Computed example of a mutant assay.
Amino acid sequence: MPAAPSPRVKTSEPLGIVFTDDGLVPNNPLPFLVYEAVIDLDSTDPAADIERMFAANGWGDMWRNGVYDYLHYHATVHEALGVASGTARVRFGGDRGRELELRPGDVAILPAGTGHQCISASSDFCIVGSYPPGPKMQITRPTPENHARALKTIPAVPLPATDPVLGAGGPLTRLWHQAR
């Protein structure tokens, strides 16, 4: 059986936001990136389209689900979230961060340490999560002890070789190298 074709991706510049450390959620000096409606999801399996896009750009260790309804972050790995269906209001950056409405075709890229929490979601909300090669994802809750540990691990997380949406020449590689 032939492989499914890669989904159509729009070349666009993502929205970039830098969240500051709030004392419990470390966030990251690298910009959090959001591509809005960047992937055309006309297929019968939009999550598979997102998985193919992430895999084609060197990101793996994928899963399908939603965003946890409690505040957390990942201190050892960067994360990409591609919306396959439904909508959700997600707060990024911790309690003093910013709420964004995520829709199908959107991709959010969280540098290690970026707080995130689902505030509300439609019943059909589904995202695909993915990570660049490297350490496995670990869920970290915002506590003073975790914050102190994260301040040591986050700067050691390597920059990804590719943007999960647009590959080696994508904006992530340029923006994150400039920020570092």
Rank of each mutant, 00 (worst) to 15 (best):
L102M: 04
G105A: 03
T140P: 10
I127Y: 01
V34Q: 13
F54N: 06
E79L: 07
Q138K: 08
N146W: 04
L151Q: 10
L30W: 04
V77H: 11
A84D: 03
G82Q: 12
P132H: 06
L41G: 15
P132T: 15
K152I: 14
Y35R: 07
P142F: 00
L151A: 03
P142N: 00
N28T: 03
N27Y: 05
G60C: 13
V107W: 12
E99V: 09
W63Y: 08
P160M: 05
R91G: 02
P29G: 08
W59E: 06
P144D: 15
T87D: 06
Q117E: 12
D124P: 05
H74D: 15
E36R: 14
F32L: 07
G93P: 08
L71N: 14
L41H: 14
D42I: 01
P111S: 07
H78A: 05
K152Y: 08
H147R: 03
G66K: 04
A48H: 02
V77D: 03
S123H: 09
G82Y: 12
E99G: 00
A161P: 00
A121R: 14
A121P: 03
N57Q: 06
A55T: 11
S85F: 02
K136N: 13
G58R: 11
K136H: 13
L159I: 01
N27S: 13
T140I: 10
L41A: 04
R98C: 14
H116Y: 02
T162G: 01
I139A: 05
S85N: 08
D40P: 06
Y70C: 04
N27A: 03
L159C: 02
I119Q: 07
A112K: 09
D22S: 00
T114G: 07
I109C: 01
L24E: 12
A150W: 05
L102R: 03
V67I: 15
G115K: 11
A55K: 11
P158G: 07
Y70H: 09
P31R: 01
A55Q: 09
A56R: 12
T114S: 12
V107I: 14
F92V: 14
Y73P: 08
A156H: 01
P164K: 13
D21T: 00
A75H: 05
G60R: 12
V77R: 07
D40N: 06
P29H: 13
S123K: 14
C118S: 08
A108W: 03
G23I: 00
A75C: 04
M137N: 07
R52W: 01
L151W: 07
S120K: 03
P158M: 03
P29F: 03
S43T: 14
A150E: 13
L41K: 07
A47N: 00
L41Y: 15
P111G: 07
D45T: 14
S122K: 08
V83C: 15
I154D: 06
D124A: 13
